[in-house]
Design a binder for these strands. Sequence first.
DNA 1: CACTATTGACTACATCTGTAGTTTCATCGA
DNA 2: TCGATGAAACTACAGATGTAGTCAATAGTG
Lengths: 122, 122
Amino acid sequence: MAERISDAEHEIMEVLWQTAPLTATEVADRVAEAKGWSLQTVKTLLSRLAAKAVIGTERDGRRFLYSPLVERDTYLAGVSRKFVDRLFGGKVTPLVAHLAEADELSDDDIREIEELLRELKG
Amino acid sequence: MAERISDAEHEIMEVLWQTAPLTATEVADRVAEAKGWSLQTVKTLLSRLAAKAVIGTERDGRRFLYSPLVERDTYLAGVSRKFVDRLFGGKVTPLVAHLAEADELSDDDIREIEELLRELKG
DNA sequence: CACTATTGACTACATCTGTAGTTTCATCGA
DNA sequence: TCGATGAAACTACAGATGTAGTCAATAGTG
């Protein structure tokens, strides 16, 4: 459980989270724009994801339709948690502090986040 | 440039960021508590880090002293950026939104972050 | 019906990672 | 001086990852 998804595999997942089900060729077409991988590479990645039961397959004649079995939010939650645990001792505040200090936050970002937090409380 | 640091290597870096320079044995002692790696494993990791020029070595008689060549903040900045780029389209707000929705943020966290943002503006 | 294009299955292979074992060389104590 | 010790260097090796190639079956097309 909580199978690891590699960077390349993640790229495939993003496509499937956006639209599913898709055939291997369709997935390949969509990632080709950004990554330029061959169809074979995409098929390998789909196989590996299916082997990990992160995506499901459904026969459609002689080909397969692939769909995510894991929701994007669930995945993000796990990855974010691991990230924050590993680099910021599990605390989110230091992460935000770090991003802020590293000038990764524009004034607009700050306003947006403040707005968001206000909603959370209200 | 911007050499990749693996999870295990990162563990070593944390030790060196806390105290440096240290000998291989000293590093091994400190990670042993948490990770239980053998001295050889630690030495391998130190070699790999040195090969990547992420840490520097200084001869001290028959042994070496190791020190970070990259600052923790610099490293965190790079890794955080990559993380946010890859998973949240480079925007920090969706990350915070996600953490908030995933209940990763306690009320205290929220207060802390608000405080932090206020300081940033002020 | 024969041929070609498509598709999944299987195979490949270099590199990176985690986790050491083995060898060699220098040094310190008896 | 000589052997035990400790440190670095070199070697190992399985599993994950990135990136395909090849093969075999099948489904349309002329």
